[in-house]
Design a protein around this nucleic acid. Structure first.
Length: 707
RNA sequence: GCCGAAGUAGCUCAGUUGGUUAGAGCACGCGCUUCAUAAGCGCGUUGUCCCCGGUUCAAGUCCGGGCUUCGGCACCA
């Protein structure tokens, strides 16, 4: 009956194909959350799919462990970096396992093997004359004890003398310069006067490879078209700047062997972690590294987020190319996750950690939901929790699992028929659909694959309804017919579970127990199961309970609150404290953590800043700008100022006119694209819709100073 | 302003190389069924396929122009 398809054609389509797959390395500075999981679930599904088609797949990942923030966090927590990253790696791996993400090997960038590969690639860059060493005289903040990047230094423009300019270029005259040329430089970190300090810096002259990279990135199928386009128009159109790959001590990372006191920048050693992880796996499994990474027979795939595209499409291929490694066949980027249409937020309970989710909900639900949403494009993906419940309940429970649920019990005694019954071509058609489904998986168009599968599920349910097995059951004379109908239904179910197995490995496993076959290969969808026993039916999947969804969000909010409490050292309230808050606040530590306190300043320092109450007289949008409003404010009497403020996204002009605000009145005028701004309106918030202007209580008058 | 993507039923989306009365799921209404996890099946309602113009025997699909939305960049001290 399935003779139109050669047996196991789907399952062996990729036999002999050797595929090396990576997900981006999660940073050891934080726990895995639902946003990370988009990538790992996407990759894991793709890997499982490739295996089911007969490819030999190696899936590796590792923790990304280096950098300043790890160093500082370890200090704050009073433990070594090694302790910190070991604990975080264990937590990461626990979370991944919980979501059935199955790496072949999970390494760390802080491994000896990684250091070796870093040295190897570094050596190749050196000998191919890609490294420029420059004795750079850099500004150093003696208070904070760190070298200052350009934008952490301000001063007067060396060309036109305009004050308050950043270390790289002047907004007034447009000239560019080195921060050391700034007059009267100030560190924006501590306010200290930076010292000149000589530092050895190492750069990779990536411009030498612009032709090669252009060709490589524009190769069809290499990158998603929108990304190839973007690179072509933005980076590759101009001369590529030398890439600064070193950081001076102190830095948690690998010291550069031929440049003592300098460390490889975290983004240098992070992708090399792919090599190290592969190598470690090879050692542990008696495989030859060269067969995986040095062989042109191996197809290398990187799954990444859109934020790190240029590391993986410019620097990384450049490094591999120079060091003589084959390059990735494809770099697949995905968008960011939003929850209920917004950025994830701890206070709203949508910044959900993987571990929190797992305490309440089934990982399979998230895997299916992501699969149903993930296409080949770089679009952001929205996790609407209501939609998740509806989709999972309707598709997986109502359609797919229901097929087994409504027929398996009827054949518990008899098992499946010996011969495949007439089914009107349903099985054959579903087997043939495997090609389109496989193509969709291959192209990372999981949403399409899910749609195709659900279409098949609809047809199977219609079949059961037509055949009415429950009626056959009531007539002992129809026993054979009953068994035939259930055989068809369960085989159609079997096909669906085959196709869904990359997404729902646990369901596949349970189904193997129920029906006794093997779902290791897509070939399972081509040959019906016949004459086999059927096990006692057990529920294969629970519905999504919206109470549990709410519990996840509540737990997320609670965790944020607890973190805030411990962050500010709140202990039990003192019995003598007078006014008691009878209403609990849910102020989390998100904001403070995101922007730590600035170094202490003296009263004199503070007094330099002249804050004044002002009244907004006029406010108009600047149409050409995306974020700016042009305000006229009064400081009382005739004194007015024009201020350009980046608050358009949060305030309509008419909502501002007439109200009192606080302005920095003695801020040096700043020439901007749309005019000169004579001051600054004080506001809080992360930006976009969340900008909150400070207002004095009623009674304050324009012109009054804020002390 | 620049670059990119997208605009199809109340919602989420599908519509392959232009080809018959534009589809699915959810929601809604009516009916059937009761094997199944308040699951399933049938029938039905809802559309200026963003707008204008062009090519064509034929445009949701191709071309030109415009509008809107969302990303990214610039601008935000």
């Amino acid at each position: 009956m399935t003779d139109t398809l050669t047996a196991s054609s789907l399952g062996s389509f990729a036999r002999g194909r050797r595929v090396l797959v990576t997900s981006a390395l999660p940073y050891a500075n934080g726990h895995i959350h639902l946003g990370h999981l988009v990538e790992y679930i996407q990759t894991d599904i793709w890997v499982r799919f490739q295996r089911m088609r007969g490819a030999r797949v190696l899936y590796v990942c590792a923790d990304d462990t280096h950098g300043t923030s790890i160093m500082i966090r370890a200090r704050q927590e009073g433990r070594s970096e090694q302790e910190l990253i070991a604990a975080m790696s264990a937590a990461h791996q626990r979370d991944f396992t919980g979501f059935q993400i199955a790496f072949d090997h999970y390494g760390s960038t802080n491994s000896e093997r990684n250091r070796e590969y870093c040295a190897q690639i570094w050596g190749a860059l050196r000998s191919a004359d890609f490294v420029v060493e420059r004795e750079v005289t850099q500004l150093f903040d003696p208070t904070a004890g760190v070298f200052l990047a350009d934008r952490f230094v301000k001063g007067r423009c060396p060309r036109c003398d305009t004050p308050d300019q950043y270390g790289d270029s002047c907004d007034h005259c447009g000239s560019t310069y080195s921060p050391t040329e700034l007059k009267d430089p100030v560190s924006t970190l501590s306010g200290a006067r930076p010292e000149l300090k000589s530092a050895h810096h190492l750069f990779v002259k990536i411009e030498k490879l612009r032709g090669f990279l252009t060709e490589w990135t524009q190769e069809p199928g290499r990158l998603q078209p929108e990304i190839a386009n973007y690179l072509k128009g933005h980076f590759l159109a101009d001369e590529l700047r030398d890439w600064d790959v070193s950081r001076p001590a102190p830095y948690f990372g690998f010291e550069i062997p031929d440049s003592p006191g300098n460390y490889w920048y975290v983004w240098f050693d992070a992708p090399i972690g792919y090599l190290a992880a592969t190598s470690e796996w090879c050692d542990a499994n008696g495989e030859a590294f060269d067969a995986w990474w040095r062989s042109t027979d191996t197809e290398i795939y990187h799954f990444i987020g859109k934020d790190i595209v240029y590391f993986h499409t410019l620097f990384w291929p450049a490094m591999l190319h120079v060091a003589g490694f084959p390059l990735p066949k494809r770099v697949q980027a995905h968008g960011f996750l939003t929850v209920n249409g917004e950025k994830m937020s701890k206070s709203k309970g949508t910044f959900v950690l993987a571990s929190t989710y797992l305490e309440h909900l089934d990982p399979a639900h998230l895997r299916y939901f992501y699969a149903s949403k993930l296409g080949p494009k770089v679009d952001d993906l929205d996790l609407n929790l209501e939609e998740l419940a509806v989709k999972v309940n309707a598709d997986l429970v109502g359609k797919v699992v229901n097929l087994a649920s409504r027929t398996a019990r009827f054949v518990k005694e008899s098992g499946l028929s010996q011969e495949y019954p007439e089914d009107g071509g349903l099985f054959r058609e579903a087997a043939a659909s495997g090609i389109a489904i496989a193509e969709a998986y291959e192209a990372c168009d999981f949403a399409r694959a899910m749609r195709l599968i659900m279409g098949l599920a609809d047809r199977a349910n219609e079949y059961i309804d037509r055949e009415e097995p429950w009626k056959l059951k009531k007539q002992p004379s129809s026993a054979a017919a009953l068994r035939d109908v259930c055989t068809v239904a369960l085989n159609l179910y079997w096909q669906l579970v085959t196709y869904l197995a990359p997404v729902l490995p646990k369901l596949a496993e349970q189904s193997e127990k129920l029906l006794g076959g093997s779902l290791a290969s897509f070939a399972a969808a081509e040959q019906p199961l016949l004459g086999t026993p059927v096990a006692e039916f057990e529920h294969l999947m629970q519905r999504v309970d919206s109470k549990k969804v709410e519990a996840v969000m509540a737990a997320t909010r609670d965790a944020a609150t607890d973190a805030a409490a411990s962050a500010v050292g709140v202990s039990a309230p003192s019995p003598t404290s007078a006014p008691v808050l009878n209403q609990p606040f849910e102020d989390d530590g998100e904001a403070l953590a995101g922007e730590p306190l600035a170094p202490e300043c003296s009263f004199d320092d503070f007094a330099k800043i002249d804050l004044r109450v002002a009244r907004v007289l006029t406010a108009v949008v600047i149409p050409e700008a995306n974020k700016l409003l042009r305000l006229t404010v009064s400081l009382g009497g005739e004194a007015t100022r024009e201020i350009i403020a980046g608050i358009k996204s949060a305030y309509a002009p008419e909502a501002l006119v007439g109200r009192l605000v606080v302005v920095v009145a003695n801020l040096a005028p700043r020439k901007m694209k749309f005019g000169v701004s004579q001051g600054m309106v004080i506001a809080a918030g992360p930006g976009a819709a969340e900008i909150y202007i400070l207002a004095p209580d009623s009674g304050a008058k324009p012109g009054q100073r804020v002390h």
